[in-house]
Amino acid sequence: MDINLNDLLRRYRSHPFEDYPVETPHTGVVFLKVKEGQTVKGPGGEWLHRPGTMLYVIERERNVKRTTALWSGQVSGIRLDIEGQFVEAGELLFSIRHQLDKEEIIDRILTQVLYILPAPQRARYFLAPEISARMEKQPKEGVSVESGDDVLIMSLMKRDTVISYEGVPGALYKVYFKPGDTVEQGSPLLGICPPDKLRYVQKVIQRIRTEWEK
């Protein structure tokens, strides 16, 4: 599928943000470490080994967990009322308004270029052991899949179901989840690039890289 890249880039330029809610991962007593409007940094360094800005500390059963920012951006909607209080799991603390960078824009645009295998159900997903092993041995673009290949394991209602790939053969270009993640129904799991589209995909990437900075 060819895309109107100019339109997409214009759209992202006019609103290059995504709001990420920061929620408590579990129960505990929470201590906020940021202020409203503060700019925070995500992980840095060549291997993203430098942690981002400390966001909050949560203490549960005498275990202290320090949570750092996974995205750079600006803090908004901070909940000062919960400072030092016991909170439940999934409690919204604040949001981070993150400005998308070039690589993130590429990722988002590629979902419209690659052949996407979407999640058939809201479930936990794992790569099939064979695919996982192949990906460890070679770069993901070198791992090819074709119809009938067992590519994923869907863990749904405590049962594991092997998901076979049904679609155009091609290189496994993008994995959109981490093993064990719960993925919403319809969200992308894998992005496949058919061999005849590889040049087109590379061209799209190149164009975004060049034009995004303009």
């Binding site: 991962p25 579990h26 129960t27 549960r60 059963e61 275990n63 016991f86 439940e88 799991a89 999934g90």
Partner: peptide, 16 residues
């Protein structure tokens, strides 16, 4: 009623 991350985390249960 307390919302927890999951039913299989003992720390969640004991903290509640």
């Amino acid at each position: 009623a307390y919302r927890v991350a999951n039913y299989k985390d003992p720390n969640e249960i004991f903290s509640v």
